[in-house]
Write a protein that binds this DNA or RNA. Structure first.
Lengths: 206, 206
DNA sequence: TTTAAAGTTGAATGTTGATTCATGTTTCAT
DNA sequence: ATGAAACATGAATCAACATTCAACTTTAAA
């Protein structure tokens, strides 16, 4: 049974087919971002989302098969947002070391401006781990490539690109957490300066 | 009402008063660590814990007022474990840079040997954020102090101790996640070597 | 040995919240 | 203008648990 999809089933939950539909789905996604971001996945009820979106409870299920699925949609949506945020902000960097400094500042600013989104990504580790792994793996791959390229250009010493990429990502994530989310009294570029000195010269004397 | 504590109330939930009691509370804590560690906070039921511990459901509440409270107990218990693990492993370091290398390796090994515990700490961010903040803040404080001391001894360039501490912690945490939890095919000391070169000399040429 | 305190038990309670669905409304291609 | 497909609605369903509690057993101090 259900061999061929000529049946009226709930269909494969495709795109909205109407302007109104798109608008509604969007309101729901926005609301979900806001609710998940402020209260977290488990504290957020579907009714919280629909109330914020201004639609009825059942409408949620017209667009998303489950609570977890909106969450996943959000995470990948935010992967794009983050990448865009960072890349536009380091676009003008003259070399890799400047790019690192700008990247760190951008990360902290992102965390600060989007505390909610930042939280969603982190919580993905426990709600949709594969999305989380993907999120950072994509980052790490492109980071690794950038380091390799910079080494080829002679801007940095070469080697250990992947390990360095993960180390640098971890750095940024934690700096974003500490100086973006937990404590936003500091100037992000100050932090970036402090840390980029470490990246340029290491901890060693001279 | 309940002005003075001469009443028989459930008392203030103090220590077990009996050898048997201590044993039981311990079995419960162990079981909780194992269950929370493998399934996470929300997927774990109190019955999972008591089943694993080999006690009746109600017994749980003799020792812990709520699910969240065992979780918190676990997090702070593990703060101690982690600190001990790291500090015994960097104890013999001749200087700060070696200590950093050993610390990174130790962190990765810790993550690998205690994947469960590692997960609990991270999940604390969403279950008991204040415990999480405390966990890393304690780390950061002692790290900051160590860096300052090392600078005083002339082992590293001085300055930006706090920012550096958070950056280094983030590094370790992510390396632990990547090369400890997600991918344990690599040799931790190899990773540590790769990254400690970065710490010693930075990315810069020369 | 006695017995009050400590510990153990698991059925019962009560709430919460995700998901379903039958019915009503709106859209838009014709 | 019209009707079939899309969309919207929210009351009802249903299962999952956290927590409580009254009855029972074990411990250990005197």
């Amino acid at each position: 049974m259900n061999q061929h999809s000529t049946l009226k089933k709930p269909k494969t939950m495709t795109e909205p087919r109407t302007a109104r539909g798109k608008r509604t789905r969007d309101k729901i996604l926005q609301a979900a971002a806001s609710e998940f971001g402020s209260k977290g996945f488990h504290e957020t009820g579907i009714t919280d989302i629909t109330k914020t979106a201004g639609v009825a409870l059942g409408t949620f299920y017209t667009y998303y098969k489950s609570k977890e699925i909106v969450f996943r949609a959000l995470v990948s949506h935010m992967g794009e947002l983050t990448r865009e945020w960072i890349s536009t902000r380091i676009a003008g960097a003259p070399d890799r070391l400047s790019a690192e400094r700008m990247g760190i500042a951008a990360f902290i600013e992102f965390a600060r401006e989007h505390k909610d989104l930042y939280r969603i990504v982190m919580e993905a580790q426990f709600v949709a781990n594969d999305s989380y792994v993907e999120y950072y793996s994509i980052f790490a791959e492109s980071y690794t490539r950038n380091l390799a390229d910079a080494a080829k250009k002679g801007e940095i010493r070469s080697g250990h690109d992947e390990e360095r990429a993960w180390a640098l990502i971890g750095m940024s994530v934690f700096l974003g957490l500490k100086y973006g989310v937990w404590d936003d009294t500091r100037d992000p570029s100050e932090i970036a300066d402090a840390v980029s000195d470490l990246l340029e010269n290491g901890l060693g004397i001279k």
